[in-house]
Design a protein around this nucleic acid. Structure first.
Length: 650
RNA sequence: GCCGUUGUGGCUCAAUUGGUAGAGCUGCUGUCUUGUAAACAGCAGGUUGCAGGUUCAAGUCCUGUCAACGGCUCCA
């Protein structure tokens, strides 16, 4: 063996190389660079793959060391903390059987089966305490290749760790590994089947929080074992953790259900039924304003508005296939003159009826039918959530019928509409293209035509998008758009689907240039989604502080005392005449009180009218956020807010 | 639907080991005529989600039921 072979060379991210002894690990590399670096290192990215710090390196490997305190290594921290949590749970509840414990968006969870015990908040405290002990003990986390899979499966089974046994059986050919938790004496005190990678030791774990316990199922299958899931999060520093918890609090303050009570926006009534929304005047005003804007934007883009009935003979849904594929979300039939009728779960069949009411020529296409169509769907009781998940809602639905040649331009038009609406509301967004899934209807050519139409339109617009390969629905490729709100949270946004099913089922055709019948291309799209969900989302996006153009009350007119009442009334009426939503608050309360009220209601502008204002023929303007703006002529104020409304300023 | 938690006037919350349901805000009435985020006083408002049960006695304990809330998508 030549001397050269006892050494290896690895590449560092800065382009430099480092020569190490053969068999050296990433930890050795860290040490070779600097002792301080070694102390901070928690793992490595080797040839693009995250790995344990003690992974042996090979000649030519590209190695990037991961240190604590970086976002990149947060996964390591969270994953390892999940294990520590499981270790703590099993030490406190020896009966607990561990399932899985992945990292998620802002933290991690671990699922357990604990016979005869339901975890409580005080259990969480105890678990946290135990975790702190484990962290302080600085247990080493050691990767261990399972030499004899069958023996290990047997051991799991003997321990009653049936989930681990099941997982190992499944992964027997994937070089399965255990991670061992070892105390100072090097004794293994706990282990878990895991792919890794992990921190080298638990001492890095300093800032974590167990958040809530909830139910789940083994493999998310409600027919399988019921598990208890603990959600938790973890950061490198206490400061980061606190900031995160603060963000959660902030989000809670924006909760649309909470704001709905404070701002008198909507209600739900037990006597009426869950998931059915009552829009109070304030939110109805917001909705109406949005709908007006929505109509205008559609009219400008060549849409036709239609209305369709809320119930229909169920034979319609037999043809559409909804009864076959969607029945569990539909309400039971009602008997009308011996025929079964159903509440409509979707608007598409209705729009198709209009299309099919006469023979269509290629000259008629594209036809763009739009409807704020109210639909009713059965949602399982446990999933209902304020306005965001309901049982009756109004979709801003549209169906476009066109020729295959027209498809791309139509998609382009929709994307344009989406862009202008979402920008108006102040959302950033991101597009995802979902392509053909494994199980699908229609021909390959149809899928290609449809998918290309979607993709090409996005390319033409230079849009950023991600492809979700195989993520389409069985009858359609689609573009889904995710919205990001004011505090960076993600919302389900607009969607565009090219339907390869209904045109066939309903025989949706047009007469082409050649005089023959051709199947029309049908595009479903919703921009706002549903008025319920969209408005619910908007409440949170704006934290209840609707921009002037949407605000339920735009201006509060506040006379200081009785002798200013006449003038205030006059001004309020003048505003009303200009279609500005003004509210005269001349209650015999102090001006401070009424200002506070208007502030709490998030009224954008307040006009205070007293002696000085009457004398100088001006109004004193106050803004909900800017405080006192100063005095100005009424006309000047009017012009200012009319412009703010016109431009839909955020 | 399933798991867990919760359910007291319109709202926010109190009620010692089971022992007569309280407060603030809102609302109404009156006084005050107000200068930029809460004037003062009085009044009204609840069969404690609903239905049973245990008990001399239930907001409190038990059973059922309804609803809300957190999850049940993240896969060693």
């Amino acid at each position: 063996m030549s001397k050269v072979e006892t050494q290896i060379q690895v590449k560092l991210p800065d382009g430099n190389s480092k020569t190490l002894e053969a068999g050296a690990t990433a930890a050795d590399l860290a040490k070779a660079i600097a002792e301080g670096l070694f102390r901070k290192s928690v793992g490595a990215v080797i040839n693009g793959e995250p790995k344990d710090l003690y992974t042996p390196l090979k000649d030519g490997d590209e190695v990037k060391l991961l240190t604590a305190d970086t976002d990149e290594s947060l996964e390591f921290l969270r994953h390892s903390t999940a294990h520590v949590m499981a270790e703590a749970v099993q030490s406190l509840f020896p009966n607990a059987k561990i399932a899985i414990g992945p990292t998620i968006q802002d933290g991690f969870y671990y699922d357990f089966e604990i016979a005869d015990h339901a975890l409580t908040p005080s259990d969480l405290e105890a678990i946290e305490k135990k975790m702190t002990e484990i962290a302080k003990e600085n247990q080493r986390i050691v990767r261990y290749d399972i030499p004899d899979v069958d023996a290990q499966i047997k051991e799991f089974e003997q321990q009653g760790e049936k989930f681990k046994a099941e997982l190992l059986t499944e992964h027997r050919d994937h070089n399965p590994t255990l991670y061992l938790m070892q105390n100072k004496e090097g004794k293994t005190v706990w282990n878990d089947l895991c792919r890794g990678p992990h921190l080298p030791a638990t001492g890095f774990i300093k800032a974590f929080k167990l958040q809530k316990v909830s139910g789940s199922y083994w493999r998310a299958d409600e027919n399988k074992e019921k598990l208890q899931r603990i959600y938790a999060t973890c950061f490198w520093t206490k400061k980061d953790l606190e900031e995160h918890l603060k963000r959660l609090e902030e989000a809670e303050k924006r909760d649309h259900r909470k704001l709905a009570k404070q701002l008198d926006l909507f209600s739900v009534h037990e006597e009426v039924g869950p998931g059915l929304i009552f829009w109070h005047p304030n939110l109805a005003t917001v909705r109406d304003t949005i709908e007006e804007y929505w109509r205008k934007e559609h009219r400008r883009r060549g849409y036709d508005f239609v209305y369709t009935p809320h119930i229909a003979n169920e034979s319609l849904y037999k043809i559409s296939g909804h009864l076959e594929n969607y029945a569990e979300n539909m309400y039971s039939p009602m008997d009308i003159d011996g025929e079964d009728y159903r509440c409509k779960p979707m608007n598409c069949p209705g729009h198709i009826m209009i299309y099919k009411s006469k023979l269509r020529s290629y000259r008629d296409l594209p036809l763009r039918y739009a409807e704020l169509g109210t639909v009713y769907r059965y949602e399982r009781s446990g999933v209902l959530h304020g306005m965001l998940r309901v049982r009756g809602f109004t979709q801003d639905d549209s169906h476009i019928f066109c020729t295959p040649e027209q498809l791309k331009d139509e998609i382009n038009g929709i994307l344009d509409l989406i862009d202008s609406l979402m920008t108006t509301f102040g959302y950033r967004y991101k597009a995802y293209l979902s392509t053909r899934p494994e199980k699908y209807l229609g021909t390959d050519e149809q899928w290609e035509m449809a998918t290309n139409g979607l993709e090409q339109a996005m390319k033409d617009r230079n849009m950023d998008y991600e492809v979700d390969e195989g993520g389409g629905v069985f009858y359609a490729p689609k573009i889904d758009i995710k919205l990001f709100d004011a505090i960076g949270r993600e919302w389900q946004g607009p969607t565009i689907q090219v339907d390869l099913n209904l045109p066939n089922r309903f025989d949706v055709t047009y007469i082409g240039e050649d005089g023959n019948r051709h199947q029309a291309v049908m595009v479903h799209r919703a921009v706002l989604g549903s008025m319920e969900r969209f408005c619910g989302g908007l409440i949170e996006h704006y934290a209840g502080r609707f921009p002037l153009w949407l605000a339920p009350t735009q201006v509060a007119v506040l006379p200081i005392s009785d002798r200013h009442q006449e003038r205030a009334k006059e001004l309020a009426l003048a505003l009303q005449k200009k279609e500005i939503r003004a509210h005269l608050d001349d209650r015999p309360e102090t001006i401070q009180y009424r200002i506070r009220d208007a502030q709490l209601e998030q009224t954008p502008y307040m006009l205070v009218i007293g002696d000085k204002e009457m004398e100088d023929d001006v109004v004193a303007v106050r803004h909900r956020q800017g405080g006192q703006v100063g005095t100005m002529k009424f006309e000047e104020f009017l012009e200012k807010i009319e412009k703010e409304i016109e431009t839909k300023q955020l």
